[in-house]
Design a binder for these strands. Structure first.
Length: 298
DNA sequence: ACTCCGACCTGGTCGC
DNA sequence: TGCGACCAGGTCGGAG
């Protein structure tokens, strides 16, 4: 499942393979994949055709391609961008036009240089593409409108740990809920939340109102470190023409300490990792290293 | 204003 | 064997 490191791998692939190229045609094979483009498929394809991809940007799990008039032009306020969210199963593939269509091909973008095309493939259609004008954000930067409410992520050079800790401690909920709230800190999903909590020895239901500043720093630092490690591994397994979120999947087999490790011994203390139901999903934790607080939330 | 929860979606797996 | 239940989970909109 793509979280921040996987999306960054995709962003880098797009930077390498589509930035600077002029779009020729766009084909929407499944309308659900552009459902967030309110003006519909014809408007979406019309906004892209003929434009040049200026830069590949990312905030948290959202990524977008700026559209400009000519190669090497810099996008300014009012220029459109193609916004993408990979959802659960979205992939961006850069492939030769004669390679067979994927079963779940949703959107195809061709270029006027006859080079490889860009395909958005998404089995479960939780993800999608849309086009929006770029607008200056209050805190700086040029963002597509739907990204305006998303907080900076830990890989952002302007991310500040203490502000993020204050944001978490301001919430009145369980710690993991706060970590998953993309308006407080972005980029963290179920996998890296569980890994960060395990590293910081904190329980997922810990009430944020009793979290100390030091504990807040510890869990966010852990999240940042585990995502850095995943990116370092995910960025290596990638051939020239294939931009694929699955490139990062090898990380999960070797390096996860908590997520998905139910009944396996904790690598610190040997106690079997437990799985708890959490928000219609799962939380994995070590019952000894991460004891449930008496005043657990939810 | 803040918090919570259901719906969305498909393919693989498991139990009867 | 067949079939239904369940699981994976990020985001949004509406309810409280």
């Amino acid at each position: 499942m793509p979280e921040l490191p996987e999306v960054e791998v995709v962003r880098r692939g797009l930077h390498d393979h589509v930035v600077g190229r002029r779009i020729a045609t766009v084909t929407v094979a499944h309308p659900r994949s552009i459902r967030r483009h309110a003006a519909g498929a014809a408007d979406f394809t019309g906004r892209l055709a003929g434009r040049v991809i200026g830069a590949a940007q990312r905030r948290g799990k959202y990524l977008w391609l700026e559209l400009v008039d000519a190669p090497a032009s810099v996008a300014t306020a009012g220029d459109d961008a193609v916004l993408a969210h990979l959802g659960m199963s979205g992939q961006m593939l850069v492939e030769s036009h004669d390679s067979p269509d994927e079963k779940h091909l949703r959107v195809r973008v061709t270029f006027d240089d006859d080079g490889p095309e860009l395909r958005f493939v998404d089995q479960r259609t939780f993800g999608g593409l849309s086009a929006h004008p770029l607008a200056p954000a209050a805190a700086g930067g040029l963002l597509p409108e739907p990204v305006a409410h998303i907080a900076r992520d830990p890989m952002d050079p302007e991310f500040t740990l203490d502000d993020a800790v204050a944001g978490i401690r301001r919430r009145r909920t369980g710690l993991k809920r706060a970590l998953l709230d993309q308006t407080v800190v972005s980029g963290i999903g179920n996998i890296y939340a569980d890994e960060a909590l395990w590293r910081a020895k904190l329980h997922w239901a810990r009430p944020t109102e009793t979290l100390t500043r030091a504990q807040g720093r510890a869990v966010l630092t852990a999240a940042s470190e585990v995502m850095d490690a995943a990116l370092a591994q995910g960025g290596t397994s990638f051939d020239a023409l294939y931009v694929d979120v699955n490139g990062a999947s090898g990380y999960f087999d070797r390096s996860l300490d908590a997520y998905g490790q139910v009944d396996k011994p904790c690598r610190r203390c040997g106690t079997p990792i437990r799985r708890d139901p959490f928000m219609n999903r799962s939380s994995f934790s070590c019952p000894r290293c991460q004891p449930r607080p008496r005043n657990a939330h939810v």
